[in-house]
Simulated assay, not measured.
Amino acid sequence: MAHRFEVYKDKAGEFRVRFKYNSEVIFSTEGYSDKSGAKRAIESIRKHVGDAEVVDVD
């Protein structure tokens, strides 16, 4: 698969989500104290990304 979400535990013991495209990390989230928080973040991203505004900040 060319793109995917990964839930992982960072060095501080928090759960984070990173989104990868062709093995390159595109973004990662803040840390969550439990895995369910990270999974809720994925669902929120999936739900709202289609409506995201594009802003040119030049």
Rank of each mutant, 00 (worst) to 15 (best):
N22L: 12
R16H: 05
E53H: 03
V25K: 14
R18D: 05
R16A: 02
V25P: 03
R4M: 03
M1V: 15
E6R: 05
S23Y: 12
F5M: 04
V55G: 00
G31R: 05
R40Y: 07
R18K: 15
Y21V: 15
D34W: 01
H3M: 11
K9C: 11
H48Q: 11
G37A: 01
K9E: 13
G31M: 05
V7N: 02
S36K: 11
S28A: 13
R4S: 08
K39D: 12
A12Q: 15
E6I: 06
E24D: 15
Y21F: 15
D56E: 04
Y32G: 01
G13T: 04
S28N: 11
F27V: 08
A52F: 06
H3F: 12
D51N: 11
V7G: 01
R18L: 12
E30N: 07
D58M: 12
V55F: 02
R18S: 13
K20E: 15
S23M: 12
V25H: 10
F15G: 04
K11A: 13
H48R: 11
N22D: 14
R18E: 12
G31N: 03
I26V: 15
F15V: 06
K39I: 11
K11Y: 08
R4L: 04
A12W: 07
V55R: 03
D34S: 03
I45H: 00
F19H: 11
S28Y: 10
V25Y: 10
Y21A: 12
R18A: 09
K20S: 15
F5D: 00
K20F: 13
A41Q: 06
R16T: 04
I45D: 00
E30Q: 10
Y32I: 01
V57N: 09
R18G: 14
V54M: 04
Y21H: 13
D58A: 12
E30W: 03
A12G: 09
V57Y: 07
V55H: 02
G13E: 04
R18H: 13
Y32C: 02
R40V: 07
A38Y: 02
D58L: 15
I26D: 08
V55T: 01
D10S: 08
N22G: 12
S33W: 07
N22P: 00
V55Q: 01
G13C: 05
A52H: 08
D58I: 07
G50H: 07
V25A: 13
K9M: 10
K39H: 12
S36H: 09
T29M: 06
V57C: 06
V54N: 01
V55P: 00
G31D: 02
V54T: 05
V7A: 06
Y32P: 00
S36I: 09
R46K: 15
D34G: 03
E43M: 11
R16F: 02
S44G: 13
